[in-house]
Simulated assay, not measured.
Amino acid sequence: MKLNRQKILSFFKKSQNRATVILQDKTKASATIKDALGKAVSNKGELEGVWSKLVLLFAVSKDYVNGDYTEIPKRSIIAILGGLIYFLSPIDVIPDFIPVLGLIDDVFVLNLVYKQVVKDLEKYKIWKDQQDGRIINIDAPSK
Rank of each mutant, 00 (worst) to 15 (best):
A140M: 12
G45A: 04
V118Q: 15
K128H: 09
R134N: 14
E48S: 05
P99A: 05
K44F: 04
L54W: 09
N4W: 01
D105F: 02
K7P: 00
K7V: 01
S142N: 10
V55S: 07
I138G: 04
F58S: 09
K2A: 09
I22F: 13
G45H: 04
V55E: 15
L54D: 12
K28M: 13
F58D: 11
K34I: 01
I22C: 07
K26I: 00
P73N: 13
I104H: 09
P90A: 07
L112F: 07
P95R: 07
A31I: 08
V109I: 12
I104A: 11
T32V: 04
Y64S: 11
K115Y: 11
E122H: 06
G38M: 08
A36Y: 05
D106W: 01
D92S: 08
T70R: 15
L56A: 07
L112N: 06
N111F: 00
L84G: 06
I104D: 14
K125M: 14
L81S: 11
G102H: 12
A31P: 05
Q16P: 02
L101A: 14
K119P: 04
N66C: 06
E71R: 12
K14H: 06
S15P: 03
W127G: 04
K123L: 09
I136S: 12
K123W: 05
L9G: 06
K115N: 15
I8D: 14
R134C: 06
I136V: 13
I138N: 12
A36S: 14
D68I: 10
V60N: 11
D63V: 03
Q24E: 15
L103G: 01
I135F: 11
L110R: 03
V41W: 10
G38H: 07
D25V: 00
K14C: 02
Y69P: 11
K14N: 10
F11W: 06
Y114E: 09
N66P: 05
L88W: 09
F87M: 06
R75Q: 10
V118E: 15
Q116P: 00
S10H: 12
N17D: 14
L23I: 04
K14D: 13
Y69N: 10
L23E: 13
L81Q: 13
Y114Q: 06
Q131Y: 05
S52C: 00
Q131N: 13
K119Q: 14
L101K: 10
S61W: 07
V50N: 09
S142D: 13
N43C: 02
K2C: 02
K7Y: 05
S42T: 03
Y124K: 04
K125W: 11
D96I: 00
L101R: 09
S76P: 04
I94G: 08
K7N: 11
V55F: 01
S61Y: 08
Q116W: 09
D63A: 10
